[in-house]
Design a protein around this nucleic acid. Structure first.
Lengths: 247, 247
DNA sequence: CAGTGGTCTAGACCACGCG
DNA sequence: GCGTGGTCTAGACCACTGT
């Protein structure tokens, strides 16, 4: 814990908190910082990596390290806050095995994909991929304004959707996700696999939401069912196969 | 993307998947691996760091790198799976500002803390801290067997608890959490701040759950309320102040 | 004690961004 | 072209583990 890079990170945190390095400002170059703290460049980079993972700084190749603007946390699903801008794009693809299984359609079926990238003041906040069976997506077009999670798209395409099942986990972003969200590959994200179902259990749509761990929350209210804890796990549906590895 | 350490990591992944390095087996020492791949030790360590973050290997200072046993994912809240062992300990402390605010008690009030560490086959799976106002915890003692999330403890202490509000995010573990869960500080975890409430809205207990991102899921079923997305965020309670920074 | 990982150095060379 | 970050090297020394 008395590692050099920890000390450097600590000092930089202090300076950022004190406002010496203001929000949005560029930090001195890594070479300068390394000279100032009398550490080698890898050590200094390690310190910056810590700050980046904490969401305090943002790096840009060829430009420098910048103090990230403090961001209010967004709370899902209420989507708290103004100033959110959602950019939606759409495309066609054919369902591969996993997606087809989730949607309950034949593999190779045509599927419409909507991608919702939410920003606040140019800072990416969340990324949502919504998958609709082609048939349902007939009259669905990318709305100019929609919720960050694409719920509107699903409801517009198929109002029969009455519930969603979320499977939430924490992981690192894929390369694409990291690029879209403008973070490094080592910033933890909240990943939500969402399945929209109708009353009869039919799957209406599937979505994958990726939120930045340091900018987003998910809020959930659960009724407490005093179930004996020694039960076998048959209480609520999770018929997806158990995974063994994180890929 | 053709970085040396990526190539090394890829090859090691392949060897692990192929069973050349079996589950639980020790990998060759970092020096040997570095020599074999003709890279420097920092580069090789970078590759191992990737695998560790993915949950494929586990490092032990002075002993070596080991292939981690594949672990089934636990799905919360059903707690799917047998073979879970929950160790419970308890203690007393006085509520500091944040905790007192969550529990709705005066700062410096006495609070009973329960810590539940869940393991499967000696592998830590989750860590739960449950906080009960001292008064309610009178007749609550650490049960020999309880749910991994400590729900039982809360219900035993105060059966009035009827709902819980969860605030879920993704982050890195604190030093303590990393130690308890036997992972590095750079493995993403799912952190859940849980508030138990009674019908009248009174806060009964508060809990902090930490799950390993690569070993756990949270499953949530939500009814869809077709709320206009342009609403102001007044729909569901989140009276906690908005945070601006991840600490 | 010997072997292992943990951390660090003082450079080097390459790739990107911007003027 | 110049300054920036991205990656890598070939060592060094320290701390921990087990015999």
């Amino acid at each position: 814990m008395t590692a050099r890079h920890q000390h450097v990170a600590e000092d930089l945190r202090r300076l950022i908190a004190a406002g010496t390095y203001a929000e949005g400002a560029r930090l001195p170059s890594e070479a300068r910082l390394a000279a100032h703290y009398r550490v080698s460049t890898p050590t200094l980079r390690e310190a910056l990596e810590l700050l980046r993972a904490e969401g305090l700084v943002e790096k840009f190749h060829g430009r420098g390290n910048f103090v990230r603007r403090p961001t209010q946390r967004i709370t899902y699903p209420s989507g708290a806050g103004d100033g959110l801008h959602v950019a939606v794009s759409s495309g066609e693809l054919t369902a591969t095995g996993e997606l087809a299984a989730r949607l309950g359609v034949q593999p190779e079926s045509p599927v419409t994909e909507f991608v919702c990238l939410t920003r606040r003041a140019d800072s990416p906040q969340s990324l949502a991929h919504v998958y609709l069976p082609h048939a349902a997506a007939q009259d669905a077009k990318p709305p100019a304004d929609c919720s960050p999670w694409g719920d509107d798209i699903v409801l517009a395409a198929d109002p029969a959707a009455t519930a969603s099942t979320d499977r939430i986990t924490a992981r690192f972003p894929t390369t694409d996700e990291a690029q879209s969200l403008r973070v490094g590959g080592r910033t933890p994200v909240l990943a939500i696999e969402r399945t929209f179902t109708a009353d009869d259990g039919r799957v209406v749509a599937s979505a994958r939401l990726v939120l930045l761990g340091d900018r987003a929350d998910v809020a959930v209210i659960t009724p407490i069912t005093p179930i004996a804890h020694t039960d076998r796990p048959e209480q609520q549906g999770n018929t997806l196969g158990e995974e063994t590895r994180t890929g």
